[in-house]
């Protein structure tokens, strides 16, 4: 039954693809190349390399390598900053009162608006790009961590206190694990935001990467190539989210178990 249900949901994908193919072929618009042409270009540009390199071409490494490095370093850097700051703020009601208005203001500023500022302040390339990613993705991580640290069960904290757990034990063994489900929700949101901001940063402040390739192909009227970039980014987002869910399911197995039984 599950297989049939899954197939029942999936049938729409090929239908849409075929319809797209038929319509774009009939229309013969240069802006809308048929999916087959897009896929052919994607294969040519990125996936016709030797098997020893997982079929990746030099072009794939040149486009994806810097982008992925930016995405992950930006995301991980933000995760460390966001979780550390979030735990500190969440554990201290007074600090939370002080910084809350600043956080609310900061998250209301659309991060792409800051790209010109970062470009003026920092060097074109990695520093400005990283700053854009960090500033854009820190909010869901920070807010979720604050919430997680603030809502640790009172009885868990009292248990920790009565059994004389040290401050470090309380942090690592009680507060952090307790906040982890919310932290992970923030990290997942941040990961998809990081992909968007990575592209934006590369379009506005880049000389390489998939975002830069997107801009370049658009300016050179290489529409199948441009569509290839868009599809690749979509697939990338999907894969990143799936991979993250896989990790989350492992790390938070206790959380799912505990929720199912109570």
């Amino acid at each position: 039954m599950k297989v049939i249900a899954a197939l029942g949901r999936l049938w729409l994908v090929p239908v849409v693809l075929v319809a797209w193919e038929v319509v774009t072929r009939a229309a013969e618009q240069p802006f809308f190349p048929p999916p087959s042409a897009v896929l052919a270009r994607m294969h040519e540009m990125w996936f016709s390399g030797p098997p020893s390199r997982l079929l990746l071409t030099d072009g794939a490494l040149a486009d994806l390598g810097p982008s992925m490095a930016r995405l992950f370093s930006g995301w991980l850097l933000t995760a460390v900053i966001g979780v550390a700051a979030g735990i500190a703020i969440g554990c201290s009601p007074r600090l939370s009162d002080y910084v809350n208005p600043l956080i609310q203001f900061g998250r209301a500023v659309p991060p792409p608006l800051l790209v010109p500022f970062f470009l003026a302040l920092l060097k074109l390339g990695t520093p400005a790009q990283l700053a854009t990613i960090v500033f854009g993705v820190i909010w869901p991580i920070l807010l979720n961590t604050i919430d997680g640290a603030r809502t640790v069960d009172r009885q868990h904290l009292e248990t920790a206190r009565i059994f004389g757990l040290s401050a470090a034990q309380r942090l690592w063994r009680v507060i952090l694990p307790s906040a982890l489900p919310k932290i992970f929700a923030g990290l997942r949101l941040a990961l998809s935001l990081a992909l968007i901001l990575m592209v934006i940063a590369e379009i506005f402040a880049g000389t390489d990467g998939i975002g830069y390739r997107l801009l370049y192909t658009q300016r050179s009227y290489l529409y199948p190539d441009m569509w290839g970039c868009i599809v690749l980014l979509g697939v990338l987002g999907y894969l990143l989210n799936s991979a993250f869910l896989l990790v989350e399911r492992r790390v938070l197995a206790w959380h799912r178990g505990a929720r199912q039984t109570t």
Binding site: R161, I162, S178
Partner: peptide, 19 residues
């Protein structure tokens, strides 16, 4: 909180750490 004091709460699910 005294050093050598232990406690058993009624609500074990909120006293044991589920992780």
């Amino acid at each position: 909180t005294p050093d050598d004091l232990a406690i058993v709460f009624q609500d074990y699910s909120r006293s044991l750490f589920p992780w």
